[in-house]
C-alpha cells in the first residue's frame, strides 16, 4: 500500500472502472471484457501504486504495450477526471480523439501500442534512462500473454534483467485469450513465471482480482532490488461481472450486440451499492 487507500475504497474504484468500461463499450463495442477483468489491477495501479505529481498527472510512468487494454486506462482516467465519460463515449467512433488503440502522446499513453510486443523494451529503455538520470520514478508496463509469443518481449526481459532494472515492473495480463482463441490452444506460453525467472526476473503469480494481494505484490515489487519484477495476473475475461460470463467465448472483442450491457450495468450498480453500504455502515 502506497497512498494509504483502504482496500474497500480501491474495490469501489474498481467497480466504478468496470462501470466506465461498460458505458464506453456499449456505444459501439470494444475490448470490454479485458477492461472489466483488469479493473482491480487498474484501480491498484492508478489509485494507490503510482504517485501523483504536482501537475495533476503521475510521477511514475505507465507503458501500455497492448493497445486493446487501453480501455482499462480509459476506465481509470474517467475516475481521475482526466477524461470525461462523454469524451470516452466517442471511443471507436470515426474521427474520435479517443483511439481504441492509442498513439504515442495521447493523454495516458506513452507509446504507440498496437503493434504487439513492443512495450516491454520501451519500458525497459525508459527505466534505464530514468535510472541513468538519478530519477526515483518507477516504470510499470502492462502486456498480455498473447504478446509472450513475440520475440521482442523476451529480448526486453533479457535486457532488463541484465541491466538490473529494479525500477521496472512488468504486469502480465495472463488471460489465456488471444485473437484466435485460448492461448493454450494457439501457442502455449506457460509456464510464464518460470520463463521470466530463467531470464533473471523476480516473479509472482496472482489472480489479479484480489485487491489485498495486488497491493502486497506491488509492495514486493518495490522492495525488490537488483532485478526487474514481473507480476503475472491470471485474469479471466469478464472477471468481476457474473452475468456476462456467458459471453466469454466471444470475448476477445465484444461487439455492441454481443452482450446485454444493461444487465451488466445492473449487476455493477448492485455491487457498488453493497460495497458503499459496507463502507458507510
Amino acid at each position: 500500500m502506497r497512498r494509504n487507500q483502504s482496500i474497500l475504497d480501491l474495490e469501489i474504484i474498481a467497480v466504478k472502472i468496470r462501470r466506465n468500461v461498460l458505458e464506453i463499450c456499449r456505444q459501439r463495442g470494444g475490448y470490454a471484457a479485458q477492461g472489466v477483468a483488469l479493473a482491480d489491477v487498474t484501480a491498484a495501479l492508478y489509485f494507490d501504486e503510482m504517485r501523483p505529481d504536482s501537475e495533476g498527472w503521475f510521477h511514475d510512468r505507465f507503458v501500455l504495450s497492448n493497445g486493446h487494454d487501453a480501455i482499462m486506462t480509459y476506465g481509470a482516467l474517467a475516475e481521475t477526471g482526466h477524461y470525461t465519460i462523454e469524451q470516452l463515449r466517442t471511443y471507436n467512433e470515426d474521427g474520435s480523439q479517443v483511439d481504441q488503440s492509442p498513439i504515442e502522446g495521447q493523454l495516458g499513453f506513452e507509446i504507440t501500442a498496437g503493434s504487439l510486443g513492443q512495450g516491454p523494451s520501451q519500458a525497459a529503455g525508459l527505466a534505464w534512462a530514468l535510472r541513468q538520470q538519478g530519477s526515483d520514478k518507477r516504470v510499470y508496463c502492462l502486456f498480455s500473454d498473447g504478446e509472450l509469443q513475440e520475440g521482442n518481449v523476451w529480448e526486453a526481459a533479457m535486457f532488463a534483467a541484465h541491466q538490473k532494472l529494479d525500477n521496472l515492473c512488468f504486469i502480465v495480463d495472463n488471460n489465456d485469450m488471444q485473437a484466435s482463441g485460448r492461448a493454450v490452444d494457439v501457442l502455449g506460453v506457460e509456464p510464464v513465471p518460470e520463463k521470466f525467472e530463467a531470464f533473471g526476473c523476480k516473479t509472482r503469480r496472482i489472480t489479479g482480482t484480489d485487491m489485498a494481494e495486488l497491493l502486497d505484490t506491488f509492495d514486493e515489487a518495490r522492495a525488490t532490488k537488483g532485478q526487474p519484477y514481473v507480476m503475472i495476473c491470471d485474469t479471466r475475461l469478464w472477471d468481476g461481472i457474473d452475468c456476462l460470463q456467458q459471453a466469454l467465448p466471444m470475448a476477445h472483442y465484444t461487439a455492441k450486440a454481443a452482450v446485454d450491457w444493461d444487465e451488466g450495468l445492473a449487476e455493477i450498480t448492485a455491487t457498488l451499492s453493497a460495497l458503499e453500504a459496507r463502507r458507510d455502515g
Binding site: V63, E110, I111, Q118, S121, Q122, A123, A124, G125, L126, A127, W128, A129, L130, Q132, Q133, N152, A156, F159
Partner: peptide, 11 residues
C-alpha cells in the same frame, strides 16, 4: 524499441 524508451526518458 529500447532506444525509443530511452528517448521517452529524456535522453
Amino acid at each position: 524499441s529500447v532506444a525509443a524508451g530511452v528517448a521517452k526518458g529524456g535522453l
